[in-house]
Design a binder for these strands. Structure first.
Lengths: 235, 235, 235, 235
DNA sequence: AATGAATGAGACTTCATTCAT
DNA sequence: GATGAATGAAGTCTCATTCAT
């Protein structure tokens, strides 16, 4: 037990130190850009000596990667929960996008980090590593999106002419893209657009949801589902 | 005249050399990421000696910036032309987004470059410099977007509940974000989503347009289905 | 008694641990070269933690030195035994060189180790330490060699024109040199020379012995020379 | 011509700088051992700054390698010349070994360097690179050795029972091994053996030549012993 | 206009070692 | 006896940039 306690202490110390490094790194990556942050700066920010850092991470990529993993792990779990609570397909989608809007408000720095990651690292990093992480974020993989769209068409909450294999993928990509761009450009956009970024983001979501939602049955339309079936041909 | 001819030659030579450098840099930036490309590599790619590069650019930022300016200049002008040809507000917006879809297909490397630029540089570079360039891209500045939305509401092609100060800004941001993300992730996304990236991008645009478009007027909708089928062709 | 038992256990444990370290080190030294092996690698190979190593050795030199001592101790004793069994001086010398040929076949890694040691360390290490060890290897010191040559000249088995103060020293040096070089270059030599290294080594010994041996006595020798030359060929 | 002159100047400057680096390195390698010499020390010895060194060599291995190439190039050419002058096979071999004895006296540091190289680097360096260099040192490759032995047996200067595919290879290896060991151990051996190293080396050669030489022809040997004693004087 | 040569500054990383537990 | 944690010191190498020619 003494032994265990000791281990516990050691171990929690290790975890804490590790986190200090990650926190320092994340902050600096956000401030200066991943590739412009030197090990020396991270070490400085974490209040340790360079050689100590190498007891925890074997290089900068390792650190970047650990942050990515954190971000993914964090998001995936909470997104799932948010969606499970909703009833109709449209509600589920709305919940998911809402969840992203909240994430946006609460931790823009994580989103900026991911923006950097995508634009810089995606090309040079092992696809396998990335895919294994991404598998977590969309619960049940991408097929879940297809299922969602089909369910929405069936329950009448989504436009019948959506493509189950395409639409949600496109929408999610747009939302992520919009989110990251807003987070990256930050105050700059606010000044330029004269709007708080999260209003912009919520408007993006609103338009997208409007675009997916089944058209309101115009008074008597309910019965006359026919026009919507006409639109279906499009696809 | 001899003098003038010399100057002429000299000058065109200068221009050519400069372009060789920019081309080499752009290629490398796209392949390895802006911050991972050294002056030495650019110099190598351009087939000149390091000291020569400094006769044309005073540092790497200068080069990056020159490329940004090129991209902006290119886009702005052609986008304007595309929009001028369209009649209704919705058509103008559609034309603009279509134009972006084409740019996406034709020069994904430029888009990837801008993705890097946004996520890495936007924060640390002089806002003035950036704003002055961005002013060019949206002809007439952002107010043009507001005007467009107002016109669309007036001519009945856009939903009346759109916010002129917000919607188009949000939509454009989403489109740019989606575009850059798709370009950055490139083949990776294709494999993951099982869809060619430009189909994804066009679906994004379709949903956004559906979200902005005025709902078919309730009572007479049945009859007026024809115009909507007209719009369908565009896609 | 409990105390004593403990000590006994403790001590044998210590010895075993020490040997594990030496074994790991020797293997690594042979694979990568003494100066290219880090403490970390040794520690790793021995399955202990760095700080533990310092309970047994105070630095890498200490380890190298311990291995040298082992090699010396091992060789000296067995060489002596081999020589004692032989009768004439020539037989003794032959026995010594044979002994080296066997060592060559049996533990080339030890020989490679000594090759490294000579070329790298000899210069920078305390001569005293080295001499004290080398004293062991040639039983009775170098004077023994002189004695041997004189005995050989006297008993007619060695050429009379050999220099007792020189020849054996030169021969031993050549044998050791040849041995180490062959061991170091290993397979490389085999490929290059198209001969197994130990055939090469034995040929070296044969030539050296031929060079030292007294020429066959002229007059009646002719007849007796044939059998001996026949035997010679076998080797 | 002005251009050419300029180039000439530049170029010779480059060559001189390069040589300064190599000289400094060689000296240090000999004093402290290749792996114990840092770039900083070489740079210091050559009177340049670290970054300048990298304009001439891309790392330490490159430097080591350049020295090896020099040693090889140097030796090969002169050895060839020495042998060409001799008549009989035995004379050629004698000339070759003599040549090595001279090299030993004149540039022991180069030999020590090669000793280090063999024992440390041989294992880890590209065999191809090494073989391509070694091809130069033994003119006509190793087949030359076989030819030499056959010629010697034919012209009666070498023992008839030598193995053309083996003997010379073994002898050369022994000579090189002896040479390197003596050079490496240097003064240490002199003190220990009480003999100047080059006397030891020449004795080695003498014994080896005696071992290879055809025995004096039987019948008239007694009388013809004088010539052999004459040969002895040569030494 | 071009470039050969040099270099200061600094980046990342390894390593042997210590010490408290 | 073993070891987790930390670290000073050093090592190799890269890079942007300058300057004389």
């Amino acid at each position: 037990m003494n032994e265990a306690a000791k281990r516990g202490t050691y171990s929690s110390h290790r975890v804490r130190q590790r986190q200090r490094i990650l926190d320092a790194a994340e902050k600096l990556f956000d401030e200066h850009g991943i590739d412009r942050v030197s090990i020396a700066e991270i070490v400085n920010g974490a209040g340790i000596r360079p050689s100590t850092l190498y007891e925890y991470f074997s290089n900068k990529d390792d650190i970047v990667w650990a942050i990515v993993a954190d971000v993914f792990a964090d998001g995936a779990e909470r997104a799932k929960k948010a969606m499970d609570a909703a009833a109709t397909a449209l509600d589920k989608i709305t919940a998911l996008l809402e969840f992203m809007a909240e994430g946006f408000t609460q931790s823009p720095s994580k989103i900026r980090f991911m923006a950097q990651f995508d634009s810089m690292y995606a090309r040079q990093w092992s696809p396998e590593r990335l895919l294994s992480l991404e598998a977590q974020v969309s619960p049940g993989g991408l097929e879940y999106f297809s299922t969602l769209v089909r369910a929405g068409i069936a329950d009448g909450t989504l436009r019948p002419d959506l493509d189950p294999e395409l639409t949600m993928h496109a929408v999610i990509n747009a939302v992520i893209g919009a989110q990251r761009r807003l987070a990256s450009l930050g105050r700059r956009v606010e000044m330029e657009y004269g709007q708080p970024v999260d209003r912009l983001f919520r408007e993006t979501i609103r338009i997208l949801l409007l675009g997916m939602r089944a058209p309101a049955p115009p008074s008597e339309v309910k019965r006359k589902n026919s026009p919507s079936s006409g639109k279906r041909k499009k696809r």
